[in-house]
């Protein structure tokens, strides 16, 4: 996973709430067996509409998605995170994310930033009025900055540390092998096993 320290880029204001992962990446894309090549599937249905914000020429190359509340609800597909990253997004801002999506994003180095809806509104207004306006997401200082906006955000210390250092969870867990072995030795005998009976 790549480390995330601070990122500055132009934004895509997405004024929609409850954007579920079926919208982010439709099911037929889930047949792929790799982690890349999902960029064309991102918001596929909406992109058929030439006026959809992602299609606007002034939004090309934008790397910060500013979304409505309850972003990433629905299916647990991690492909939603890969699609956003494959497309070029480095960070997503919303007032509320679905839990599984949030977990997936942080594991892949896509920083999901929770800000109050008033701040999201201001970022929408700013970037709609001026598509060249840039937003900075600073993980070191846990701060989002843009013209006339400076807002702190929360992220738990452990997730922040892993993102800042680009650390792989499995490697970290395997350092605790002795604890896992000890736990396994105390598991009750009645717990099921999957071997055919």
């Amino acid at each position: 996973m790549e480390a995330f320290t601070t990122h500055t880029g132009r934004a895509v204001p997405l004024r929609r709430s409850n954007v579920d992962t079926d919208q982010i990446i439709p099911a037929h894309w889930l047949k792929k067996v790799t982690r890349d090549g999902f960029e064309d599937g991102l918001f596929e249905a909406w992109r058929k509409d030439g006026e959809f914000v992602l299609n606007r020429p002034e939004r090309q190359g934008a790397t910060v998605l500013v979304a409505g509340p309850d972003f990433g609800t629905g299916s647990s597909r991690e492909h939603a995170v890969w699609a956003l990253q494959n497309y070029g997004f480095e960070t997503v801002i919303s007032s509320r994310f679905a839990d599984i999506f949030r977990g997936n994003s942080l594991k892949n180095g896509l920083l999901t930033v929770v800000l109050p809806q008033e701040t999201v509104d201001r970022l929408w207004e700013l970037t709609e009025a001026d598509p060249t306006a840039e937003i900075t997401v600073d993980l070191q200082r846990r701060e989002v900055r843009a013209e006339g906006v400076s807002a702190e955000f929360e992220l738990d210390e452990n997730a922040r540390w892993r993102l800042l250092n680009g650390l792989d969870d499995i490697g970290i867990t395997l350092k605790n092998e002795a604890d896992i072995v000890a736990y396994e030795s105390r598991r009750p005998a009645f717990k099921p096993r999957t071997a055919p009976v």
Binding site: S76, E78, N104, D169, I170
Partner: peptide, 10 residues
């Protein structure tokens, strides 16, 4: 509970 693919690997 449901998990993502990175967690499946984990």
């Amino acid at each position: 509970f449901g998990i993502g693919t990175s967690q499946v690997e984990h």
